[in-house]
Design a binder for these strands. Structure first.
Lengths: 124, 124
DNA sequence: ACCAAAATTAGTAATAATTCCTAATTTTTA
DNA sequence: TAAAAATTAGGAATTATTACTAATTTTGGT
């Protein structure tokens, strides 16, 4: 992977804007820094960065994929009301593990918890 | 929810065709039975059925949502090679549970395991 | 059974998220 | 410092899904 200024901007922005943005949300922030970066470039680089493990792609939150600069193993909670995404630390969860395991070689797993966050609990 | 022949066909087909199909895959099978059922009707009914808990919507498998007629609590494994989706029974997994939990009211969670299935292990 | 109200439909248009394409530019290599 | 390889912008194309509308079907009361 060669250096590119655009990729650097994209990664920097994702790291600063640490709210698990979708590509569209991230595009807006990237666009402020560099108006010439195209969506094609954004998507291509997000996928490249995710493939090489520099960032993480999160599916299943809504219709769009979201991206996380935090690659240390952790899970996510999405609030059904406000749709905000929170990190759930691995240490706070009993890690799932398949007991009998002759069928599959499991390389990784994702957990997405859903419910109501503290802020939205107050509002009820 | 009123009765409709189309919804019945859709549900029957999903139950017969028990491979966690995407809407597109299911549409092909439904179309064989009744050529007049439109995609709008398919999507609307899949969402209605999922909302009322009769079927389950699975996100995060690929770009499309998949649907599962099996509503008893279980997880999924997706093979990175052949992209086939397998059921993982709840009893075969250490159930995750958040230890400290004053932040979130968790109503449900999904786990998606990824790796290589037995068939694809043989092919390597 | 009959009829109005409510629900559902087919078909198409519209939208959203993402990928693909191409010629131009940038980065690397040696 | 020039050729090769990688990357880019911008727009077209694709995929998955939802929205719209007029017609049809289902339902519940008589």
């Amino acid at each position: 992977m060669n250096y590119s200024k655009q990729r650097e901007t994209i990664l920097d922005t994702l790291r600063e804007y640490a709210v698990h943005p979708s590509a569209e949300q991230l595009f807006e922030k990237v666009h402020v820094k560099d108006k010439t970066i195209s969506k094609g470039t954004l998507y291509r680089n997000l996928n490249l960065l995710a493939e090489s493990g520099i960032i993480k792609k999160i599916d299943g939150l809504d219709t769009a994929a979201h991206f996380d600069h935090n690659t240390h193993e952790h899970y996510h909670f999405i609030c059904n009301k406000c749709k905000k995404i929170y990190d759930i630390e691995k240490e706070d969860v009993k890690i799932p593990e398949i007991k009998q395991n002759d069928e599959f070689i499991i390389t990784n797993h994702d957990i997405i918890f859903k419910g109501i966050c503290k802020d939205c609990q107050k509002k009820i």
